[in-house]
Design a protein around this nucleic acid. Structure first.
Lengths: 362, 362
DNA sequence: GAGGTCATTGTGAGCGCTAACAATTCATGG
DNA sequence: CCATGAATTGTTAGCGCTCACAATGACCTC
C-alpha cells in the first residue's frame, strides 16, 4: 500500500514548515516572478518534504477553471471513433487539459450473435444525459464524436452552459465542426478506379443515418455523373465485416454483368466483400477491383492488400481541440467548419494507377 | 451559440427565487428525506427556471470526493487495451464515476514507415508524470492498463496518494490486479492443436517485455512439455501484422520439416502469418493450422477465418473498477488478484476439434 | 535625510457548497 | 391549554485555494 489515508497537507501546512505565508507558497507554485530565490528554494523543499499537492477542487472553485474537457462518443469500438478519441486526448494534453471521457450509448455488447455489435442511434435523451454528466464533472467544453446525423441534430437542439464542437460529421446543422472531407475521399476512390480503366464503379455504403456514409456516397455519385456514367444500384451495410460479406455475396452475382470495380465505404466491410468474392471464385483485382476506406492497420495485410483512403485522425483531434479552446477562451475561431484532406493509398486490390492508363469513356 | 457567458447561478440565487434558504436547496438536490413536498416542488421549479447546476468544484472541496477515476494507458491503438479502456469507462459510469483518461506514452505516431507504430516502453518518469497529472485532476484512484512488465514494476515503486489497480498484467509485482488468465489461453490454443492431431506446435510470441506475451508462451510451453514434446524454437513479433508477416516467411521455410501448426500470440500477427504462408504456397489449414489470440472483430473474416482465443474485456473492466472502489472506500477487497477465464473460438484456420480425433503421441 | 521607487511578503475576503447545529413549526396527548 | 417530540427549515462555519490590496524593507535620487 503506497498511499496513506491521512488528510493530505494543505498549503498552510507547507507555509508553516517553510516559515512563510500560504500566499508565498501559492506564488512559488504559480511561478510568480517576485519571489526571492532563497524563499523559493525553502518553499520547494517544504513541498517536497511533505509530499504536498495542490487541491484541484479548491483551485477550480476560485479560478473557475477546471482545465478539463469532455469527450462524448458513441460506438468507440469502430476504428474511426477510437482513433479520433485518442487523438483528442493527446491534443488536449498538449494544451494542458485533461480529457473526461463519456460514452453516450448504453452498454455496447461486444458482438451480437453473429459478429458485431449493433449500431445504436443516439437519442436526444442519451446525449443530453451525457452532456449533463460531463457538465457535473466540471468540463469547460465538450467535443462530440458524432458521426450520425441524428446525433448532430440532437446536439443542435440541446442547451448547455459550455461550448460544444463536433468532430467526424461534415457540414450539416449549424455547429462548429471538424471533419475529414469525406466527399473528396469518395471522389478519390472512384476516380482512381475510373482512371484504371473501369467503365463504372459500384458502391457499398455505410448506414443511412451516418453523415460520413452519405458524403462518401455523394463523392462517388458525383464523380460518376461528371463522367456521364449512370451510377449503379447502391448497396448498404452497417460497417461490419459481416454486412460486407453479405453484400459481397450479392455483388458476386453481378460479375460478368458490368461489375468490375467496387468502392466500399470502410475497410471492415471491404474485408467481408473480399471474402465473399473469394468464396464465389471471383478474383481480386483481376475480376473485380476493390477500394476501401479508413486504412486500418490490418488492411495492408488483407488478401489481397487493400487500396483504401486514409484519414488523418491526428489532425482532426488537433483541430478539434484548437477550435474548442478558441470557443472557451472567447477568441474568434480561425474557422468554425474545418475539413481535413484524406489521402488515397494504392495497394494490390486495384490495379496500379499506371497499369491501364487507357481509359474508355462511354 | 447555446451557451451564455454570464456567471452561472448559485445555490443562493435559486434559494432566493424559491423563497427558502440555500441549505434547503442543497437538501432537495441531495434527496434528503425531511423536505416538505410543497417546498421540494417549489425549489425544483426554481432550479429548472434558472437552469441551475451544482458547482462540482465547490462540492468536491467540501465533500472531499470528486467521483472521478483515472485511467492510464500506453498504446491504446491495440485492440486489447482499447477494449479494456471502454469497458472501464462503462463500469465506472455504472458506479456513478467519471473516467479521466490519460495516455502515458508521448505521441504515438499512427504508423511508422512501414505500417505500425513502434511500441514504447513506459518509463518510470512517464508513468510518474501521468499519475501526477491525474492526481492534479483530482482522481480518487487510478486503473493502469499496463501490459508491460516494466510498467508494473515502475508502478510498484511509485508513491501516490490514491490507490492504483493494474489490469492486463498477470501475477507479478505485489499490486492489486485484474487480468485474463493468459496461461490458460495459451494452454487452450496449444491443446486444441495437439488434440487435432498435430505432433507439435510452433509459437510466435509477443514482445519480450509484455507479461501477456510471456504468459501465453508459458501456457504453450507447459502444454507441450506435459505431453513430452520438446517445444520448437520460439519466434518473436511486436504484435503488428508486419512482424507476423516476417515471422510467417520464416515459418514457411519449416513446412515439411515438422511444422504443421502455429499458435500466434495475437490476431494481427496471425493475419500477417496467414498472408506470408499464402504467398509461399502453404495452405491453411491443410498444410499448416493457425491459432490466434484476442478475437478481434475482423478475425472471423480472415482468409481463412481464424481460430482464436477470446478475452472478456467487459469482465476485466467491471472487476477492475470493483476492486479499485473497494480500495477507495477502504473495504477489504474480495480478492486482490483476479483472473478471468478466456475462451477458445474454433474457426476454419484449424481443423475442427472432432475431425482428426486420433492423436499420435510421440 | 526626506521622499520615492521597486521588490518582496503578508492579510483578509470570498469562491459555492455541505455538515453540524440551532430554531421554528406543527400535531398530539394529558 | 400547554408540554413534548418529531418534522421541517434556517444559521453558521469552514473546505483549500487565489485575488486584491496592504505592509514592509531595501535602495535610490536629489
Amino acid at each position: 500500500m503506497t498511499h496513506t489515508q491521512l488528510r493530505p497537507p494543505t498549503m498552510a501546512d507547507v507555509a508553516r514548515l517553510a516559515g512563510v505565508s500560504h500566499q508565498t507558497v501559492s506564488r512559488v507554485l504559480g511561478d510568480h516572478p517576485n519571489v526571492r530565490e532563497q524563499t523559493r528554494v525553502r518553499v520547494l523543499r517544504a513541498i517536497e518534504e511533505m509530499g504536498y499537492r495542490r487541491n484541484s477542487s479548491a483551485r477550480a472553485l476560485v479560478t473557475r477553471r477546471t482545465r478539463t474537457l469532455g469527450v462524448v462518443a458513441s460506438d468507440t469500438t469502430l476504428y474511426g471513433p477510437a482513433s479520433t478519441l485518442f487523438a483528442l486526448e493527446e491534443a488536449a494534453r498538449a494544451e494542458g487539459y485533461l480529457a473526461l471521457e463519456r460514452q453516450s450509448a448504453q452498454t455496447v455488447r461486444r458482438r451480437s450473435l453473429f459478429g458485431r455489435p449493433s449500431l445504436r442511434r443516439l437519442t436526444v435523451e442519451e446525449l443530453s444525459e451525457a452532456l449533463d454528466h460531463l457538465g457535473e464533472g466540471g468540463v469547460e467544453g465538450v467535443v462530440a464524436i458524432a458521426p450520425q446525423r441524428s446525433a448532430v441534430e440532437a446536439l443542435a437542439e440541446l442547451r448547455h452552459p459550455f461550448p460544444v464542437v463536433v468532430v467526424g460529421s461534415g457540414p450539416g446543422v449549424d455547429i462548429p465542426s471538424v471533419s475529414v472531407d469525406q466527399q473528396l475521399g469518395g471522389r478519390l476512390a472512384t476516380a482512381h478506379l475510373l482512371a484504371a480503366g473501369h467503365r463504372t464503379v459500384w458502391h457499398l455504403a455505410g448506414p443511412e443515418d451516418w453523415q460520413e456514409a452519405a458524403d462518401r456516397a455523394a463523392g462517388w455519385r458525383s464523380t460518376l455523373e461528371a463522367e456521364g456514367v449512370e451510377p449503379p444500384m447502391l448497396l448498404r451495410g452497417d460497417w461490419s465485416p459481416l454486412s460486407g460479406y453479405r453484400a459481397g455475396q450479392e455483388l458476386a452475382g453481378w460479375v460478368g454483368r458490368g461489375l468490375t470495380a467496387v468502392f466500399v465505404a470502410n475497410d471492415q466491410m471491404a474485408l467481408g466483400v473480399l471474402r465473399a468474392l473469394r468464396e464465389a471464385g471471383v478474383r481480386t483485382p483481376q475480376d473485380v477491383a476493390v477500394v476501401g476506406f479508413d486504412d486500418i492497420p490490418e488492411s495492408e495485410f488483407f488478401a489481397p492488400p487493400l487500396t483504401t483512403v486514409r484519414q488523418d485522425f491526428e489532425a482532426v483531434g488537433k483541430q478539434g481541440i484548437a477550435l474548442l479552446l478558441d470557443l472557451i477562451e472567447g477568441r474568434p475561431p480561425a474557422a468554425s467548419r474545418i475539413a481535413i484532406e484524406p489521402q488515397l493509398v494504392v495497394r494490390a486490390s486495384t490495379f496500379p494507377y499506371t497499369a491501364q492508363a487507357e481509359r474508355v469513356p462511354l
